[in-house]
Nucleic acid binder design. Structure first.
Lengths: 130, 130
DNA sequence: TTAGGGCTTCCACCTACTGGAAGGTCAAGG
DNA sequence: CCTTGACCTTCCAGTAGGTGGAAGCCCTAA
């Protein structure tokens, strides 16, 4: 399979696939013309990467998950540890964003949003009347 | 004021303050020794930047907000538009993260997390039994 | 044979900083 | 006067995770 076909099937841009090869996540073969030649297993890895990244795992997480995926003897606890830690980070991020959203939506509600120059949003950001 | 004092007061690292000067967000004076010399107004701008960034506004948002802050005649609607758009992005991000969290916590709950190799997390990421 | 599309590499750019090296400046203590 | 150490300066490089573009092969069909 050439990169274009893999790109279509895995729903990853060719640039990204090349990048993943650069950083050693996939190792496609090469044809005599220098083109990358992807096996089914490469395809599966790329699809795996696409799903992992969509779940917000970092590249390093993905690298570890892939290694565990390749390892028939790994304990599921290892995978679970990565996922749990990631889950905690996500929950903390959600909490941060919720707090930001509350502040921001409060400010937006308070702001008249008309032609007058008075604006509570800027007042709050400046934290003193101007 | 030297950069150290401003750093303490604004709670921004010196590196970040220099960076903000680099990209034109603040324009401190210079003393005869080449040291940056910050006025009160620079301090206020930096504090404004710190709070805006903490609310997740991008640097470009901050640049626009600062310009509006400096402009006595701006309409509050302009500020509100920036804040509203940012708010929408945050809400969309929260929705994404919530969905990711649901998927992930489901997977983590399903995973035995023991010494056995069977792992539903990897199965789901690979999307086929292996 | 030529036109097009696909493939290759390489280099630069993005956001928002951060780390570190090499060196100038300043105030206090000996 | 000299040293020490904190503080300041600039500049270069690197982070994550790609993306955009240029220059140049390769392959197929008309």
């Amino acid at each position: 399979m050439n990169i274009g076909e893999v790109s279509d099937k895995s729903d990853l841009p060719p640039k990204t696939i090349r990048y993943y090869e650069d950083i050693g996540l996939v190792k496609p073969l090469r044809g005599p013309n220098g083109y990358r030649s992807f096996r089914e297993s490469d395809m599966h890895k790329l699809a795996f990467l696409g799903r992992s990244r969509a779940l917000g795992f970092t590249i390093e997480d993905c690298r570890n998950l892939l290694a565990l995926w390749d390892d028939q003897d790994r304990a599921s606890a290892d995978v679970r540890a990565i996922a749990r830690e990631h889950l905690e980070q996500i929950e903390s991020k959600i909490a941060d964003l919720n707090s930001i959203r509350d502040t921001l939506s409060h400010l937006v509600r308070e702001c008249a949003g008309d032609h007058r120059p008075d604006c509570p949003i800027l007042k709050k950001l400046g934290n003193f009347s101007k």
